[in-house]
Amino acid sequence: MDLDVMISYLPLYKDALLLTMRIGWQGAAIAVVIGLLGSAGIHFKIPIVRYMVYAYTQLFRNTPLLVQLFFIYFALPKIGILVSPEVCGTWGLGLLGGAYMTETFRSGLDSIPKIQSESAESLGMSRSQVFRYVILPQAVSSSVPGLVANIIFLLKETSVFSTISLMDLMFTAKDLIGMYAKTIECLVLLVIFYLIMLLPVSVLGDLLERRLRHAEFGD
């Protein structure tokens, strides 16, 4: 392994990491927003909306991100919807993640037994109070493990962005290998940079889960 070569590659990898992280986290943020809206639509049984949410989650959970990105990036321009690679990556990831987040939040909301909301109502709480003080706090804590898993999943999925010519970590590694054939150095750097991106999330996620387990009702 040639350390000097690796050091000379560092700035390129750093730029790629920043791009990958920016798109990854923006996508995850969009996913959380979509997930909240979608799960609310299903939980409150809003007519029509719940069927649309259902169709959307099934469609995006049962197709690979790569195919979704190809569709957005190469197919949509043919009917006049042109998007830049970055917008495509962000929204592709957001839409994929939104489908997963919707499921996670929905099962969080569903995990609270009906008897709790009935008891709360019999104590004289209004429906909005029941939701705010009884359902929501518990739903949030039971959704956290799923949320963390989804975020890690989404950040990992960013590795396909090179196919829509975004200069992410994969793209940089492949490009450098193609130009200078320093395969081992490039692959080692690739692993290190993915660790920098994902290890903190994994560790923090574990801590958060352990902390929130205390907040659960009973047991």
């Binding site: 990992k156 692993v191 993915y194």
Partner: peptide
């Protein structure tokens, strides 16, 4: 933890291109 953190794409590259080299 390796499987949880490393994208499959990275593993694919390591096995496909890395083994050829090493």
């Amino acid at each position: 933890e390796i499987v949880r953190i490393m994208p499959q794409m990275v593993l694919l590259f390591i096995v496909y291109f890395g083994t050829t080299r090493v």
